[in-house]
Design a protein around this nucleic acid. Structure first.
Lengths: 334, 334
DNA sequence: GTGAAAGCGCTAACAG
DNA sequence: CTGTTAGCGCTTTCAC
């Protein structure tokens, strides 16, 4: 069933059918209805490939994430897909992993697949080593790029992010406000956003006249889904370092810290305060529940899709929007 | 840059370029190399839409899930995407939600998008009310459908599943073996797989001569991501029902039961044993860690993609494969 | 082993 | 308001 069949049955030309299909005004109501009836009767749907070839677009948006099973990414994917679907876009999903070469390959693949745009989830796609961002600049020459929770200044690249610096600073201040000065910062990535958080931690300490001690900023080098490994990592540190609170770069790390504390017999929050980040489901499934930062993921996702639709409709859109996170106080802090 | 440009620069016809591009044998080594050099030099990539139009395929597989942020779905998506990518397929992701109408619309959308096949994640897509599966049969007329953890007998529909009946029966037997007879079964869905689990629970009881009491099979009607609501649900039941163990249809529900127990001051597993399902990250982030069923998701995903590739290569493939789950004993059982 | 040419099914000038 | 027609860029017979 093609546009030719429909045009024949409706007694019009294919151009008219195409007009009806694309909602053009230049069709008389009667003709339009006749065509619509035939389309309906035949249950006809235009061939998307032919349409794509003609329009040079298939209304597809690429979604890039390192790992779709990661809690942050999977929630983002869900929100984004919902919104894109409402706007008649289809989602091409790619899980790149954390290696630069694969990120490049995948983004390039999306460009070649002629997606209308790509959304990159998480700051892992932006490095503080500018040379490693070359692939972003390159892709942005072809399609608009939307970064979720990453900050990068480049033409045709749009960012929506949570102010991780401020949130982490607030979290740290909250701990300091309770008279705790020995605070371990635990992180897992060197992405832009991870470094912002770290720097928020540092600023809070500095502002209060507390010393910056590098041994109190620990980088956990493995996958944060391995909770036991996180606990073991802290155990290995034990004895060398004395601290009364842990601020973690994400909820997984914080849960790892809880496991460490439980193994060591520490009472939370009395002996050890813990703050996570992301307000993921993990923060609600432990006991006590985890104090964490809500980085307004849903808001960010809605915003990013709205921006995307704007761009694709040739509207001028802001290149960067920053939302504020919120500290959710639960049972792991006093 | 089109195939015409390449053919011109290489001094051959477009047919020859096309042959090189598609790995046809009928090209002399010298010509092939000359063409490849030009392609390389120009960084040329064929237009996917034109290719799609000619071949009636863009090497795309649809992935359907109810909710991509669900732990089970997000892991499945990750595994599947990896495998498909290795086989040069691209993934179109759709999150349908749990309503039948939306599932239908989305599956139909995928067919119209001319995906080569669709993978449906989770048994939510199959109902025990046969009329509601009509959309599956319909779509299967156009493209092969692969069901992950659902069982449905229909031409062009292939299933890979974990034997949820057996696993739940084993879990129940394990509890009974500890002398516990009052076992609450908590579930959240009426999907095929959910009913299989329930029936595994029942069979275990029956085999041991224990009574089947409907009030001991509780259906939690809300979203299982709301852990507090699960705990509240059990609290509301409190007093009307006496039980010493909870077997849950998934880890979320089990965590909800843990929260209930903790609120009530019950000691786990001494006062209450709890078993979850899926071996998700939730099962490892609580204290004590959750005894749960590993339903070999990764294996299922690998298998399903292998099957898919086989089908698309016109090989005869098994329509149904069943793997066995495994009870992972952790701290919430004796 | 290679080229010419006819599609694939649609969109969008352009003409009327 | 409607029809004719020329692409879009590729695959694939069919000749040579």
């Amino acid at each position: 069933m093609t546009i030719y069949d429909i045009s024949e049955k409706a007694g019009v030309s294919i151009a008219t059918v195409s007009r009806v299909l694309n909602g053009s005004d230049n069709v008389s109501p009667q003709t339009r209805q006749r065509v619509l009836d035939v389309i309906e009767a035949c249950d006809y749907t235009p061939n998307v490939f032919a349409r794509g070839l003609g329009l040079n677009s298939m209304n597809t948006i690429g979604i890039l994430c390192a790992d779709a099973s990661d809690l942050y990414a999977s929630s983002a994917i869900y929100y984004i897909e919902q919104e894109l679907h409402k706007n008649n876009y289809t989602c091409l999903l790619c899980c790149t992993g954390y290696g630069l070469a694969d990120k490049q390959k995948y983004l390039n693949l999306l460009v070649n697949q002629k997606v209308d745009s790509a959304i990159l989830i998480g700051s892992t796609f932006i490095s503080d080593n500018e040379a490693e961002n070359e692939y972003i600049r390159e892709a942005a020459k072809d399609i608009p790029l939307l970064l979720l929770n990453a900050d990068y200044d480049c033409e045709n690249v749009y960012c929506a992010l949570c102010d991780d610096f401020k949130s982490t600073m607030q979290a740290t201040n909250f701990i300091i406000g309770q008279g705790i000065e020995d605070i371990l910062y635990l992180y897992n990535s060197n992405s832009y956003s991870a470094l912002k958080k770290l720097s928020g931690y540092q600023s809070a300490l500095t502002q209060k006249g507390l010393p910056l001690r590098t041994e109190y900023m620990q980088h956990f080098p493995e996958n944060h889904a391995n909770l036991t490994a996180i606990a073991d990592f802290l155990s290995a540190l034990d004895g060398t370092l004395k601290y009364d609170a842990v601020i973690a770069g994400d909820d997984n790390l914080a849960i790892g810290a809880m496991k460490f504390a439980q193994k060591k017999g520490l009472s939370i929050p009395n002996d050890l305060s813990i703050i996570g980040y992301n307000n993921s489901i993990l923060s609600r499934c432990c006991e006590p529940e985890l104090t964490t930062v809500d980085n307004c993921l849903e808001t960010l996702c809605h915003h990013i899709v709205k921006t995307l639709i704007g761009i694709l409709s040739d509207n001028e859109m802001p290149q960067k929007v920053i939302f504020s996170g919120e500290l959710i106080k639960r049972g792991t802090t006093l």
